[in-house]
């Protein structure tokens, strides 16, 4: 019983921490982009205010699937979060998680997609169709990278992959397989929907795409979902390529570095057309990833 209560407490703690960190990162990103564009930018804590404000607002719904989608999106990412080691924190040390995480993230995406399309707004549908297309683009190189990592270290648990890079920082996959790390970085940008690959959101084109119909608590929940997703993806990158970390603080620091880099990198490029984005992913990242994988398996 004590064990269960402890676990539930752990659950909540991780969730709250990840949400808070994610929102903080989002604030930082807005600030950075503003500075790059020679603006002052909102304060770093602006996303917290946004979330609070959104949950206080009245909202409209388009039927039960709209509600269900929002719940499924948030629930999916929270569930995913528990399989990621954050520094020394990991609730379930279950093995085989790295493939699992990829698919668990899909639950959240499916929930969001279902809810937003359930609103009946065609712009949401267009956004979702683009998002799914782009997902096919970036997931392939990413899965090939995972393939080579798992084959290289003979384990598929993120924890195990992290342990394999222990010792000197030269053991980090960033230095051991720099090309792979670079590909993963590009994939990360795609995953987070940052600038060259943000055709699915495209506010000026399809009215923010999937979230066009969400307001009030729905947008708030999607914001929370977004923040946790960012943490999951960054944590995945840090664990796989930067050797993870012993404690949550250095882990957060590593995530922050990656996030800042990704933000700055993203702000440099204009938007890809959706099929060009997919083509790009299949040409360079996938090609390099396949070469790297061939190098590893031979």
């Amino acid at each position: 019983m004590i064990d269960l209560i402890y676990k539930i407490g752990h659950f909540l703690l991780i969730t709250v921490f990840a949400t808070a960190l994610g929102l903080l990162f989002m604030g930082i990103a807005r600030k950075i982009i503003a500075r790059i564009q020679k603006r002052y930018g909102p304060p770093v804590y602006q996303p917290y205010l946004d979330v609070l404000k959104l949950f206080g607002k009245d909202a409209i719904t388009h039927g039960f699937i709209f509600d269900f989608g929002a719940v499924m999106a948030l629930g999916g990412v929270i569930a995913t979060l528990f399989f990621i080691p954050l520094g020394s924190w990991q609730l379930y040390s279950m093995e085989g998680t790295v493939l699992l995480v990829i698919y668990l993230l899909a639950v959240a995406s499916l929930g969001m997609a279902m809810g937003t399309v359930g609103s009946g707004n065609p712009q949401a549908s267009i956004g979702i169709s683009r998002a799914l297309t782009q997902m096919l683009g970036y997931e392939l190189p990413f899965l090939v990278i995972l393939f080579s990592l798992i084959f290289r270290y003979q384990t598929s648990s993120i924890w195990g992959l992290m342990q394999a890079q222990a010792g000197s920082f030269l053991n980090w996959n960033l230095f051991a397989y720099p090309m792979m790390a670079l590909v993963a970085f590009v994939v990360l940008i795609g995953m987070m929907g940052k600038k060259p690959f943000d055709a699915m959101i495209a506010p000026s084109e399809i009215g923010s795409g999937p979230v066009v119909e969400s307001g009030g608590k729905y947008l708030g929940m999607l914001l929370l979902q977004k923040s946790i997703t960012i943490i999951i993806e960054l944590a995945l990158y840090v664990n796989l390529f930067l050797g993870g970390a012993d404690n949550i603080f250095s882990f957060s620091f590593k995530m922050l570095i990656v996030w800042i880099l990704a933000t700055m990198f993203g702000s440099l490029f204009p938007r890809f057309r959706i099929e060009d984005g997919v083509k790009f992913f299949w040409k360079w990242p996938l090609g390099i990833a396949i070469l790297q994988a061939l190098y590893i398996i031979i």
Partner: peptide, 13 residues
């Protein structure tokens, strides 16, 4: 969170 109001499918942005 606050309860939301149900609107029709055509009542969209």
């Amino acid at each position: 969170a606050k309860k939301s109001k149900l609107v029709g499918l055509l009542d969209t942005y």
